[in-house]
Design a protein around this nucleic acid. Structure first.
Lengths: 219, 219
DNA sequence: ACCTGAACACCGTTCAAGT
DNA sequence: ACCTGAACACCGTTCAAGT
């Protein structure tokens, strides 16, 4: 009935599944073993240790990113599309997101997003050091957004989600927070993501760069 | 010789200390108890559980943020100063940073940075929803930067720090990454932080906002 | 009020034994 | 080659017992 042989892929898939169902804290070698109906130690025939298993989780998720950016579109559009592709996958695996962002991968799946972004920025005419700095600014922003969206960092709701409308903080100590309570208490993640992304794209567009090739490659 | 009574503060301080010395993974109730020379269960007289202890760590670090921003300076300068204050504290407690950013605090120490930033943005003339969106964009960027700086997320060095100059990735598959290897392999964290910060400040400056009070408050 | 040891239900991983 | 149980050195937390 269950002759399917154990393999690294099956183990990683079980881990991704478990994380999405119960959160990253639920992941343990023993738990995944029972999930797969095998002894704990059987896992170690395919995965050297837990850390490597989590690398596998990150790799598996990263490999599913789907880039749809049009190479003939203006670079601003391409950058937006690439950023949205990252967000897509994070929305698809929200509870894996912290794990994915936390393990830096030096594998094809981990390097591909960087490669594509750098190609876009160089085609846009950015000098090499500028291309890297702009990339890093975008990635920092995207990482911060995604961690907020999946609930890892704060949305600035000053009184936990389930609290009363007035909240429990001292409104006289924090008058601005109180005044803006209505906006702080809710967060349209997609709108906020797009808002900051557009700010960065606009700012990147005015970074001085080589005039030779701006939008169209012209070799 | 050690009559100093146990207290929540002493426990939290020991945790902060241990995290900075050995990393967040080293923190356990048992370890901290031995660190303080008491039985494990003694801790539970002052701290309900480990999660609350980590909240204490975050609170303790946040409470040490020192804001030096000049209320009469242009809002752009104030925003920069506030962002740098956050970075300062993260640099002072690098290994606590993930813990701090990961626990959203609804306490005075946790709300103060938000309060100050919102005051600055409102004085700059941003509408209320804009002020919140701009704040969220800045915070996302800062969170992403700090996590990179403390080693949680990737700097995009395509071949781990200790690797050979050429790296171990396939240069034909990733031509741009290979071409930019020299820039990707090193990361001047302060310079990158400032670079993206300036991009965001410039972009924020052109967000359309109420014309009534721009730089000078005019009641 | 504060401290504590024993106990319970967990961890990751090593090792030696099986097939 | 792959699977496995026992064992070791850890976890967080409950509970009942001490002072």
């Amino acid at each position: 009935m269950k002759p399917e042989p154990l393999s690294r892929e099956r183990i990683v898939a079980a881990a991704v599944d478990l994380i999405e169902r119960e959160g990253a804290d639920a992941v343990s070698m023993r738990r995944i073993a029972t999930e797969l109906g095998v002894g704990v130690m059987s896992l170690y025939n395919h995965v050297p240790n837990k850390s490597s298993l989590l690398d596998g989780v990150a790799e598996s998720v990263m490999a599913q990113i789907e880039f749809h950016d049009d190479i003939s579109a203006p670079w601003q559009e391409q950058v937006l599309a690439q950023a949205r592709a990252l967000r897509q996958i994070a929305m698809h695996y929200p509870r894996c997101t912290l794990v994915v962002l936390t393990r830096q991968l030096r594998t094809p799946a981990g390097l591909l997003p960087t490669e594509r972004a750098l190609a876009t920025l160089k085609r846009a005419g950015f000098e090499r050091d500028q291309a890297v700095s702009v990339l890093r600014a975008f990635v920092a922003y995207i990482v911060g957004c995604l961690l907020r969206e999946v609930g890892v960092t704060s949305t600035f709701d000053p009184a936990g989600g389930g609290g009363s409308i007035a909240g429990s903080f001292d409104a006289t100590l924090f008058p601005e927070t109180a005044d803006l309570y209505g906006w702080l208490a809710t967060c349209d993640h997609e709108a906020e993501f797009e808002f900051g992304l557009r700010m960065l794209v606009e700012a990147a567009a005015v970074v001085p760069r080589a005039p030779s090739n701006t939008d169209e490659p012209q070799s």
